[in-house]
Simulated assay, not measured.
Amino acid sequence: MSFPYLCPACGTNRSRFNIIEQIPFAVKKDVHSGYITERVSEKDPFHFHYRGAEYRVQCGICGIIENEELFIKNAQRNPLS
């Protein structure tokens, strides 16, 4: 998170962002009610666990939400003069 960002959508925002920390937890749900019936252990071999980004970034100007790497790469391609 200590890299410059540049919004890939609006292309002007370099300073106003929301950092979204993703904290996934695996669950089993009742098929009829939709209620969570139990949390699934990391050791459950029959459940594919989340392997996505730990953080997502939202532009504070246009609202787009993307992976942090996209904001960093865009800033690297378009450095400040």
Rank of each mutant, 00 (worst) to 15 (best):
C10I: 09
Y50H: 03
C62G: 00
S41R: 00
L70G: 11
N13H: 02
Q76K: 11
V31K: 15
F25G: 05
P45D: 08
Q22H: 12
Y35A: 13
R39K: 13
D30E: 04
L70K: 14
I64A: 02
H32S: 10
L70P: 08
T12C: 13
F48M: 14
F46I: 10
R16W: 13
E68D: 04
V27M: 05
H49P: 00
E42V: 05
H32Y: 15
E69L: 13
T12I: 11
C7K: 02
H49C: 00
N18P: 07
Y55N: 10
D30F: 02
E69D: 15
N67M: 08
G11K: 10
S15R: 12
N18C: 14
C59T: 01
I65D: 04
L6N: 01
R56W: 14
K73C: 15
E69T: 10
N74M: 04
R77Y: 06
I23F: 03
E42R: 08
P4M: 02
L80F: 15
R16I: 14
Y55P: 09
V27Q: 04
E54M: 11
H47Y: 09
H49G: 01
V31E: 14
G34R: 04
L6I: 06
N13R: 01
K28A: 11
I64Y: 06
S33D: 11
G52A: 05
N13A: 03
E38F: 04
V31R: 14
L80M: 13
I64D: 04
G60R: 02
P45A: 02
K73H: 10
F25C: 03
F3G: 09
S15W: 10
E21H: 13
V27R: 05
G34K: 01
A75G: 00
I23K: 08
H32Q: 12
I64T: 01
A9K: 15
P8F: 09
F17W: 05
G60H: 01
T12W: 05
M1W: 15
I65A: 07
E38M: 07
K43F: 09
G34M: 09
D30G: 02
G11C: 09
P4G: 01
H49S: 01
I65Y: 06
Y55L: 13
Y35D: 15
F48T: 09
E42Q: 09
Y5K: 06
C62D: 00
I72V: 08
R14Q: 05
V57T: 02
R51V: 14
I19G: 08
A53W: 08
I64P: 03
A9I: 15
I61W: 06
P8M: 12
Y5R: 03
H49M: 01
